[in-house]
């Protein structure tokens, strides 16, 4: 499903070039559960951003679901992100002015789905993520675990093929973090491709495939 060939991403820091990704070749099949681990600055987040089409590689080729997405325009990449990718962030990234339900509704709004259907789908999501009684609370009134559940509900409301999580438990305590991971794994069992970036060994070990990165290169890839 995801095929990266010789992907390179170079950042310029003053007069220095930093190779965040240095010739990455990677195949991830549909329905896989992959963890990407490595020290900070190893390029794991950049890799996730490239997979999620948030970032564009300087060279190399990226195929998603059988089509070349390397050179898509910004508008087309936005559409692919909307339809195929769900992001879960360490800091949740909820819109503070909007209630839990409205945050979950955002992707449906961007997709241009009719209000009646939106309400039905948001209600179903609130049910599924056990947020029914928090629907009309703003993020500030929610606990960390609830916030991440809202974020996950939002990321999956359009049923993306791939769910990309960047340190999803980084801001949560161990118990809540485990709950969130179980929730993500449940989505994986339902068929979603799950890619988790973490530097937490225990968390990384839960995945079925472990990719280790260092200095912009994949140094280990074990199933």
């Amino acid at each position: 499903m995801i095929r990266l060939t010789a992907i390179t991403r170079v950042f310029r820091m003053g007069d220095q070039e930093v190779r965040a990704l240095n010739g990455i070749d990677l195949d991830i099949a549909s329905g896989e559960y992959v963890s990407i681990m490595g020290p900070s600055g190893s390029g794991k987040s950049t890799l996730l951003n490239v997979i999620g089409l948030l970032d564009q590689p300087n060279s190399g080729r990226y195929e998603l679901d059988g089509s070349d997405v390397t050179d898509l325009s910004e508008t087309e990449r936005a559409r692919v992100r909307r339809e195929k990718i769900g992001f879960v962030f360490q800091s949740f990234h909820l819109v503070p002015r909007l209630t839990a339900a409205e945050n979950i509704e955002l992707p449906l709004m961007l997709e241009g789905i009719a209000p009646a259907e939106r309400t039905a789908r948001v209600d179903a999501a609130l049910d599924a993520f056990d947020l029914k009684d928090r629907a009309h609370h703003r993020p500030a009134e929610l606990s960390g675990g609830q916030r991440q559940r809202v974020a996950i509900a939002r990321a999956t409301i359009l049923r993306p093929t791939a769910l990309l999580a960047d340190e999803p438990t980084g801001n949560l305590d161990h118990r809540i973090g485990t709950e969130v991971m179980e929730l993500l794994e449940g989505l994986h069992h339902a068929g979603t491709t799950l890619i988790v970036v973490t530097h937490d060994r225990e968390l990384g070990a839960r995945a079925h495939r472990h990719i280790a990165m260092r200095d912009g290169e994949i140094v280990a890839d074990e199933k």
Partner: peptide, 16 residues
């Protein structure tokens, strides 16, 4: 800024 980033991550095109 970070909210705009989020909207982009959710697939909002620049025009939106």
């Amino acid at each position: 800024t970070s909210e705009i980033g989020l909207l982009k991550a959710l697939g909002a095109p620049a025009a939106d």
